[in-house]
């Protein structure tokens, strides 16, 4: 081994059960948009990849999938970590991405830069994993749609300022469109393409 090669940060300690727990959190988050679901598992991924986003990507990505990451995440350490722990192919064109990892939410590309799926198979769209600061403060949104009995309010700190407008544009494409997993410091919130978003300040 090359003495100068950086140490590779660990993935799941117990891949089978930790990935299952994390998957159920993602499933529940997308099935009940706006509810925060705790995600634990991977503890120290290479910065700026967050522990929660790392757990989600390690749970879902493998050699059958592609990953697009934003400029902030395009570091040799993160690339090496993704390659080792998932085997997924990194792509530079967001339209080819099964998953997108975004650390710099303020400069996130428009959602329609990603794969939107087709009318015949809308399930081929990108799942965007967006790192945010948390769900205790920040802009408040009023959510409605499948998975929500009446309406549900959620606060997101560190989301793109135009999240509601992006959501509306994405909703208009239905059944095409991207699905969003917001990765906070300890939990995720899902915003699938069906969710109607309204900013309430």
């Amino acid at each position: 081994m090359n003495a100068h090669s950086p140490t590779l940060a660990a993935g799941f300690v117990d891949p089978v059960h930790e990935a299952q727990t994390c998957f159920r959190a993602v499933l529940d988050a997308l099935a009940e948009p706006g509810t925060a679901r705790a995600v634990a598992g991977i503890t120290e991924p290479p910065a700026p990849l967050s522990a929660v986003a790392a757990s989600v990507i390690a749970t879902l990505a493998d050699f059958e999938t592609t990953i697009w990451r934003d400029a902030a995440l395009a570091t040799p350490a993160v690339d090496a970590w993704i390659a080792f722990h998932t085997g997924a192919r990194l792509v530079e064109d967001p339209r080819e991405a099964t998953f997108a990892l975004i650390a710099d939410a303020a400069n996130a590309p428009a959602w329609d830069a990603f794969a939107l799926g087709t009318d015949l198979d809308p399930s081929t769209s990108t799942t965007v994993i967006l790192q945010v600061d948390g769900f205790d403060a920040g802009a408040r949104y009023h959510l409605a749609g499948p998975g929500i009995e009446t309406t549900r309010d959620v606060a997101v700190a560190g989301a793109p300022a135009d999240l509601a407008a992006r959501g509306r544009a994405n909703r208009d494409l239905f059944p095409r469109g991207v699905d969003l997993v917001l990765a906070g410091p300890t939990a995720i919130v899902g915003l699938p393409r069906t969710t109607r978003l309204e900013e309430i300040g």
Binding site: A19, L27, L30, L60, E64, P122, S123, P192, R193, T194
Partner: peptide, 20 residues
């Protein structure tokens, strides 16, 4: 685990596009 991940990805898209 490879098979589970494939099914899990399908499940997430199924939930995002109800009835599809």
């Amino acid at each position: 685990e490879q098979t589970k991940r494939m099914i899990r990805r399908a499940l997430l898209k199924a939930v995002a596009i109800p009835g599809h």
